[in-house]
């Protein structure tokens, strides 16, 4: 009957680091998508696969495969949240690089 108590500051800082990784990854995926000149659904599929891969790598490398140590609800926060929020950034880089490359 042990209840885990999280320190709010650390949780916030972990979320911040995750957000930073997400920002960079969404922009980088957009650039990659544009360079590969992917179009329509293939491009969005590339984004979803790419973010999921980044999240898994984050769990593996940054959390040492034990995400419940660092996040209150690891599955939702790591894999689901932030996927939709970062779509605009991805789309922007995708459009820009696609226009420049083509």
């Amino acid at each position: 009957m042990k209840e885990t108590i999280y320190y709010n500051g650390s949780i916030q800082s972990n979320k911040q680091k995750l957000g930073r990784v997400r920002d960079i990854s969404s922009l980088a995926l957009g650039v990659g998508c544009g360079i590969l000149a992917l179009e329509s659904l293939v491009g969005f599929g590339f984004y979803i696969v790419g973010t999921t891969l980044t999240n898994l790598l984050f769990i593996w490398i940054c959390c040492g495969s034990e995400p419940s140590k660092f996040f209150v609800s690891p599955k939702r926060e790591l894999l689901l949240e932030g996927v939709v929020e970062n779509v605009p950034g991805f789309v922007m880089m995708w459009c820009l690089v696609y226009a420049i490359v083509s």
């Binding site: 920002d23 922009l27 605009p88 950034g89 789309v91 922007m92």
Partner: peptide
């Protein structure tokens, strides 16, 4: 429309530029 794409998409750029 490029303006609108930028309007929504620049958030990650700002957050990276302005730092934590």
């Amino acid at each position: 429309s490029w303006y609108f794409v930028n309007l929504f998409g620049l958030r990650p750029v700002y957050s990276l530029l302005m730092g934590d």
